[in-house]
């Protein structure tokens, strides 16, 4: 963001059509779109399928490379690539999580993780790809250890949320897990060194947190700030002491920094923090908005300002927004309107 303080515009690069029901979530393959490998994106939908999209290197246009179907029997709610980009995890309302392996461009379901009582809502790999977290309507958060040979072993079943758990996210550098829920809280889970995981902090209304369902969370690159979004129509930014965190001296708690309110008038389903510090949000008002930390030097601590919005990004709710990993400011969005859109955020000169 240092590079540009002026106005921005959002360019629709392409609309990806193919899903026959609402699209819940999108995920950029972290190993693609860099070093000459064509960019790749997965999307999952109420039509029970996952679509893998790839950018044609010569024409730059996107096409559907694969449809992963006939595995999940209900809505596929969430998808996540492993850090190596080799494996794709998909969580479904059919209570299972499927693991797909990219074998020479073909996707094979190599493992199915069962255990959740009902709908799986979110899946997430840790930074090293050695752990996979899942969560769901059964209020539980599961941690799976990834073993050689596409074997998975349950390392923990965490019960602490009192309602549906909407999303799990690992910290970008440390093996600390964050979950957010219909119970309005964000819970932070860490291992105690004795092969046991525990809740080390709960961020609730009492400590500046949300007053309704927390739908999503995302970290900045340094991992010392976190953004959360909620049904209470606010976006909240949290931070931790990064120096202390890096010293590895036990758990360092998170605290509320600021609340962005008055921008959305419908539920905010998704937030994602870009590498260069732009927060994108997607909401039930069909809009996508962008925020950056304001450099106004306010005495009340950091504040954030909206730099751009697209009021009619989709015809219906925006369920997921995700920045690409590459150099360009590409954003993917998924919507109830059944489409995925690729956007580029460009400075207006």
């Amino acid at each position: 963001m240092e590079s540009h303080d002026g106005a921005w515009s959002l360019k629709e690069v392409q609309k990806l059509e193919g899903h026959t029901d609402r699209v819940w979530s999108v995920a950029w393959n972290p190993a693609a779109g860099v070093a000459g490998v064509p960019a790749m994106l997965a999307s999952c939908s109420g039509d029970k399928t996952v679509r893998v999209w790839e950018q044609n290197p010569s024409s730059s246009s996107w096409f559907c490379k694969a449809v992963l179907d006939e595995t999940h029997t209900r809505t596929v709610r969430s998808c996540a690539w492993s850090p190596s980009g080799k494996l794709l995890a998909t969580g479904s309302f059919d209570a299972t999580t499927a693991i797909w392996e990219n074998v020479g461009g073909d996707f094979e379901c190599v493992s199915t993780l069962e255990g959740h009582e009902n709908e799986v809502k979110s899946v997430c790999w840790n930074a090293s790809g050695s752990l996979l977290a899942t969560c769901g309507r059964d209020r539980s958060v599961w941690i799976w250890e990834v073993l050689p040979g596409n074997e998975f072993e349950c390392a923990s079943v965490l019960q602490g949320h009192t309602q549906d758990v909407k999303m799990v996210q690992w910290h970008p550098t440390m093996d600390i897990l964050f979950s957010c829920s219909y119970d309005n809280t964000i819970k932070i889970w860490a291992e105690d060194g004795d092969d046991d995981w525990h809740c080390v902090q709960t961020l609730s209304e009492a400590n500046g947190g949300h007053t309704s369902t927390v739908w999503a969370l995302s970290f900045n690159t340094a991992g010392d700030k976190m953004v959360t979004c909620s049904d209470d129509l606010t976006i909240k930014v949290w931070e931790t002491d990064s120096a202390k965190m890096m010293s590895g001296d036990g758990y360092v708690p998170w605290s509320h920094v600021c609340t962005l309110s008055g921008y959305h008038d419908r539920t905010i389903f998704s937030v994602h923090w870009s590498r260069e510090g732009i927060i994108a949000s997607g909401a039930a008002d069909d809009a996508i908005r962008f925020f950056v930390e304001s450099k106004d030097g306010s005495v009340d601590g950091p504040s954030y300002k909206m730099i751009l919005r697209n009021e009619k990004a989709h015809d219906m709710d925006v369920n997921s927004v995700r920045w690409s990993h590459g150099e360009n400011r590409f954003l993917a969005s998924a919507s109830d309107d059944g489409t995925v859109k690729i956007w580029e955020l460009v400075p207006v000169i």
Binding site: R137, D138, R139, S140, V157, Q159, T162, Q163, D164, Y182
Partner: peptide, 13 residues
Amino acid sequence: SATLRIGDLNDFI
């Protein structure tokens, strides 16, 4: 037991 408790997971109903 926790095993039984996890069986009771229907938060909407």
